[in-house]
Design a protein around this nucleic acid. Structure first.
Lengths: 387, 387
DNA sequence: TTGAAAGCGTTACCAG
DNA sequence: CTGGTAACGCTTTCAA
């Protein structure tokens, strides 16, 4: 149902005079070509000083008289002087920018991690160039190549799902651009990584399902190419083994399409194997697809089937039923990865694999894994809204 | 419950040889100080040509023999030559970067908008510098000042909640940096904006609550300083008027604290005014706080009280009950704002207020506003999980 | 078709 | 304490 224009639209698109604008007592015309902003040289001319002197005065350098400093800074403020970022960057070989390469930003884990990164970047006076790979190897390689040569002083990366090899990162790293992998890491490059205890966390999650009575636990994963996925899968397998269960390859569902495709794949799996009584999703996206699939098939959570998944969804508790999660400290992961990166940028020392960190995930038990399993495959569809 | 280290950690922190790395047939040492990446001049020397020639050959300029072009490009590829972004940027007065200034990234609306912006930026060969204001006027002003002078060729902005005046943007705009506001716009600057039909959408949402039987509809808003908030509030008021109801200022809740603070404020409101039978949240965050508050007070949605809110939450349908929403086309808003910006960047023409766009929001009715209201204030707490 | 030189805006170095 | 000069890496005249 699209909101129509039935109600009078009270002119949200307005026309402004747009000639002169008076704000804070200054009158600046809206003109093109640009009112070329003032340069250091112009500022110096205006003051009757050499640009080198002005430069030092502005950065409070030594060997400048207090009086000159005062004059220079006053004039700079008056003319709204701002140093040209690229010029000083070129001169100093410093961009004051870090690159952040992530599969996507519309995902709680990544957006929280970016928040953590931003905190540290801001503390250090740095900007973030954010590059999205959309889980494509080609885009990742392309983006990474563009990050060479002066655009950034360091890079934080979480690998694309279909990453085949970190060759493009090697180029960065070999040129002295420090690199920190976080969450979706590569084990082929000798640099620092920040990860979660994926193996342990997956083990605990699976163990939780098994000890809640599940016998047939399926594992939903995004892509088998990443070491992170493998760690989680290994934790899953180890927990099965500890309960005397052997791995059933038929219970492994690898899907990395759209949400709808994932939901469809899960439905197919659940129909082919009606004995499945537990789902462990290795990503939050898959956990929600699992919910959707169960809802559409009329499988009641947690009575018919229990669900747990890695997720950073704040509102897991408002879902029907509340979703049990393995929650990664996404903000802290971003923050620590950034701290490692800045330690390398500032000290101009390379990052070592030995500086890698592992932060613990938290297992939060909620409604979706509660109660003992009742094998009643004919439960009615979940009806939560009151029609 | 923190996952412990009870299970043997299978060495997720590893030590790599780290001396030489052989990939794709090239051997590059991991060394610091950096293997200074190859410059145009070095490339030219290597080829026995002048750097100007090489420059033209690389950019396929005219007046270069096919043979020279071939040689140059072959050598460039072999040495992994990449032009220095800041050097060419300085020379051409182009950064090939746009600034994106948003309150936060961990929010569906903004992360979707960023996806839309990124699509257009990538098509144009541009990067995104993302700056977070955390809804702080000071941060916004600071960040904006840093965006002047060559760092970006244009800026997309959604204002901070506590924005007091767009003086800092005027500086950008007056220097010829094109500017597009999206969603949270300012009406004080004569540039293009991309918004939703906030008035209409809010009218429809309120109207929906009223025609579903609600008599006391409270309005939850983040901040009264933004024109966007006012538009929504005006839509709310207009709908009340159309139903012969007058505005009760006691039913306006302005809160912009943490989620917990918002929840607490809503609880207080609901306790003070038990006659409230409808909640209209002007942001997704407030809608979720409303859910939380109702859950904690044992008010059953939609029987005791109906809830609707602006939201881009994909999983609104998985909430208990599914949340009725007014959903903005966030991706499209970002995309259109970026398109406007690039039209200005490419044609080097200023943006006019007359180019502003308004995209329609969609009203999606789900469980939280269904059924006729039953005034039963003593309903038990919502219990959805089976313990 | 190619080369030399100037310059984008800044900062570092060395004289004075 | 201040000023000139060179240089960061590239592109763009203008000359050869």
């Amino acid at each position: 149902m699209l909101v129509s224009q039935a109600i009078p639209n009270l002119g949200s698109v307005q026309v402004y005079p747009g000639f002169l604008l008076s704000l804070q007592g200054s009158f600046l015309p809206f003109s093109f070509p640009p009112v070329s902003s003032v340069t250091l040289k112009q500022l110096a001319q205006q003051l009757g000083l050499a640009s080198s002197t002005v430069s030092r005065a502005l950065r409070n350098g030594a060997d400048i008289s207090a009086e000159t400093k005062r004059r220079v800074q006053a004039m700079a403020a008056e003319l709204h002087y701002q140093p040209h970022a690229y010029a000083s960057g070129l001169r100093n070989q410093l961009s004051h920018t870090i690159g952040v390469v992530v599969p996507e930003v519309n995902d709680r884990f990544f957006s929280l991690a970016i928040d953590g990164i931003e905190e540290v970047a801001r503390q250090n006076g740095y900007h973030m160039l954010i590059c999205l790979t959309h889980d494509s190897y080609d885009l990742e390689a392309q983006v990474t190549r563009q990050l060479t040569r002066g655009r950034v002083d360091g890079v934080l990366i979480s690998l694309a799902g279909e990453t085949q090899g970190p060759a493009h990162f090697e180029q960065l790293s070999s040129r002295g651009v420090p690199l920190v992998f976080f969450d979706r890491v590569s084990d082929a490059l000798g640099t620092a990584t920040v990860t979660t205890n994926d193996f342990d966390a997956a083990y605990q999650a699976t163990e939780h399902l098994l000890s809640s009575g599940c016998r047939r636990v399926a594992y939903l994963l995004m892509s088998g190419k990443l070491s992170i996925g493998n760690q989680r899968q290994r934790g899953y397998e180890a927990a099965l083994g500890a309960h005397g269960l052997s791995l059933d390859p038929d219970l492994l569902l690898e899907s990395s399409g759209s949400n709808d495709e994932n939901t469809a794949a899960i439905k197919t799996l659940l129909q082919r194997r009606p004995d499945i009584d537990g789902l462990f999703a290795s990503t939050g996206r898959l956990a929600l697809s699992a919910y959707q699939a169960c809802q559409e098939l009329g499988r009641v959570i947690p009575q018919d089937i229990k669900v747990i998944g890695f997720s950073n969804l704040e509102i897991a508790s408002l879902l029907a039923p509340p979703l049990s999660t393995v929650t990664q400290p996404a903000y802290e992961i971003g923050r620590e990865a950034a701290r490692l990166l800045f330690s390398a940028i500032i000290e101009k020392k390379p990052l070592l694999a030995t500086q890698s960190m592992e932060l613990p995930a938290e297992l939060i038990v909620r409604g979706s894994t509660m109660g003992s399993p009742v094998v009643s495959k004919t439960a009615p569809a979940q009806q939560l809204a009151t029609p």
